[in-house]
Amino acid sequence: MITLTLNNGVELPALGFGVFQTPPEETIQAVQTALETGYRHIDTAAAYGNEREVGEGIRRSGIPRDDVFIETKVWVSDYGQDETLHAFDKAVGKLGVEQLDLLILHQPATDRFEKTIAAYKSLGTLYADGKVRAIGVSNFMPDHLERLLGEASVVPAVNQIELHPYFTQPEVREADAAHGILDQAWSPIGGITFYPGFGDERRSVMDDPTLQEIAAAHGKSAAQVMLRWHLQEGRSAIPKSTNPGRISENFDVFDFELSAEELARIDGLNTGVRNGPDPDVPRPERFDMVIPDA
């Protein structure tokens, strides 16, 4: 496993296991399988509705708590000073742990950014109190970061963003690097089924001829090549699956290396087109989601 050192000195296993859109009834086994495969970083979120099952999967794996890096996210309906502090209580209660390794804001909530700032300041309070080992954000564009950093006392350790060969977000990565913020890729292999309705003309990254050619040269799959690309360029990546074979395949990326030329060819695939929603587009309906206490 490759580990990355965050801007506060905390070490994060670069390759994580995601459970976005994984039904609760499938989450326990998926997490247990991932940990038995070798993953030591699990990424979930309040909005996924499966934090409780993530915690149960970790316990059933028999892997000591201190050996598993747990990351979760606060949903926008829990933004605000007191609301976000309570969101932490809800998360650790469901996960069955006392401390989180990484807690991040799920969206910038541009239409109510004052609540976003209040929420992040509460993450800072949790960090100062030792309740979380690191804090961060997700889907923050450069202007969102600048607004946040103008009022925050703690620089985010991580910015989790849509990032795959067809959408590399160079401007966001440049802004993150300027502040020592780690890029973490959701949809790291360009999954096109994640967000129905967002870009119906999307092409599957998996079928790209360049990736297929590079994969064949290494005796690997296109998915494995993409994950290796992320790791070699210094990012964290969060693939997801409930299929034991794919869970294992996605972890089998530490026994080969892409050349500088191959990395450059993959970098050149960027289309600038998102597969998921644009963080700058207000979606007030997000605030209607109620995250239950238990």
Rank of each mutant, 00 (worst) to 15 (best):
L148R: 01
N139Q: 10
L126I: 03
V137Y: 03
I135K: 06
A152Y: 03
V137E: 03
A128G: 11
R147V: 00
E146G: 02
S153V: 12
H144T: 02
L126E: 04
M141R: 15
S138K: 05
M141H: 14
P142F: 13
F140E: 09
D129L: 13
G130D: 06
Y127F: 14
R147Q: 12
R147A: 05
V132T: 07
G150C: 06
G130C: 04
E146P: 01
A128R: 14
S153K: 15
L149E: 05
V155R: 14
V132Q: 00
R133D: 09
D143F: 12
N139H: 11
P142T: 13
S138V: 06
V137K: 05
R133G: 02
F140N: 04
E146D: 10
F140H: 10
N139E: 12
G150S: 01
A152G: 01
A128L: 11
R133T: 00
D143K: 11
D129N: 11
S138M: 08
L148I: 04
K131M: 05
S138G: 08
N139T: 07
A134F: 03
M141N: 14
Y127G: 09
V132E: 07
E146S: 11
S138P: 02
F140A: 11
A128V: 08
S153N: 15
S153Y: 14
Y127M: 10
